[in-house]
């Protein structure tokens, strides 16, 4: 993409890329490799680089542990509700911010950006005091509402960006051709923003699925926790059970990895590239 290149610089670039790839991917590989190793191959002073005796024992151990399935269920409920609600609310807000000009718009944008700066750790204290007053600690609903608040600003912001990317010419062209404004919205804006909706919902999904602090502070009962908190069970005072922990970690990461890889390429590049050029 940048001018004439020699064979030498190509080789250097590719070699560098391989190094970067190995360094970045090794931790992930090591987690998966460890998860498939039997216990005696995990705890060795000389690392076994490949799982030469692959086994599912660690996964059976992790999935057989107390509260695994109830915590999977909790995670799914929380994330599902958060994604749907945040997407619905954010879509409306983003529509207002991207397609209207009104008094207070700038202030609201400042609010959206500012809110992302408020550290969650600071808010945990008053939220805990509040919820313990009304005996809402250990309830999924409380966690859902709190997640909604930290997911929303980001979702509004990204969705707004996607909507700004849709050229008004397209909507207007449709209206010139005799479509109503609503028709233009459904037929032009919505399909063009659809990749943005997918991307945004994935961001929301990931943020909610990965969240630790709020779940850790507000969900005490083991059957009410989420997977990220459940992972702490592998570390006891006697040490950490690395094999099962890596299996549990792999299982926790799996939905996110899968989902993310599936849609990332479709949404990351070229939204309306070329639609209006020239």
């Amino acid at each position: 993409m940048s001018g004439p290149r020699t064979l030498g610089s190509k080789i250097v670039a590719n070699a560098l890329a391989v190094v970067v790839l190995v360094v970045m991917l090794f931790p992930v590989y090591w987690m998966v490799a460890t998860a498939f190793k039997p216990g005696r191959d995990v705890l060795t002073y000389t690392p076994k680089w490949f799982p030469t005796h692959p086994t599912l024992a660690n996964f059976r151990d992790a999935m057989g542990r107390a509260y695994f399935w109830s915590d999977v269920k909790n995670s799914l409920i929380i994330v599902g509700v958060v994604v749907v609600l945040s997407l619905a609310l954010a879509f409306l807000a983003a529509l207002a911010l991207a397609k209207f000009r009104f008094y207070g718009r700038k202030a609201f944008i400042v609010l959206i950006i500012g809110v992302q700066m408020v550290p969650l750790n600071a808010l945990v204290i008053p939220l805990y005091i509040l919820l313990s007053r009304v005996h809402q600690v250990d309830k999924l609903s409380g966690v859902i509402v709190m997640y909604l608040t930290f997911v929303l600003p980001f979702t509004v912001w990204t969705l707004r960006g996607f909507m700004l990317g849709v050229p008004r010419e397209l909507e207007e062209a449709a209206m010139v051709d005799g479509t109503t404004r609503f028709g233009a919205f459904v037929r032009i804006l919505l399909p063009l923003v659809a990749p943005g909706l997918v991307a945004t919902s994935i961001f929301a999904f990931i943020q909610a699925w990965n969240e630790f602090l709020i779940a850790y502070v507000f969900l005490h009962e083991p059957s009410k926790q989420t997977l990220t908190v459940w992972l702490a069970n592998f570390t006891t005072l006697r040490g950490t059970e690395w094999g099962p922990l890596m299996a549990g970690a792999t299982l926790t990461a799996l939905p996110v990895l899968f989902f993310f890889l599936l849609v990332q390429r479709r949404v990351a590049f070229g939204l309306t590239a070329g639609a209006v050029r020239g």
């Binding site: 790839l21 970045m24 931790p27 090591w30 699925w209 990220t228 992972l231 970690a249 990461a253 990895l257």
Partner: peptide, 20 residues
């Protein structure tokens, strides 16, 4: 590869670095 790292949950990432 980068997306794979990006998608790794923070809690998981901490545990696997702790292991390394």
């Amino acid at each position: 590869g980068l997306v794979l790292v990006w998608a790794t949950p923070v809690v998981v990432a901490v545990d696997l670095w702790r292991w390394m």
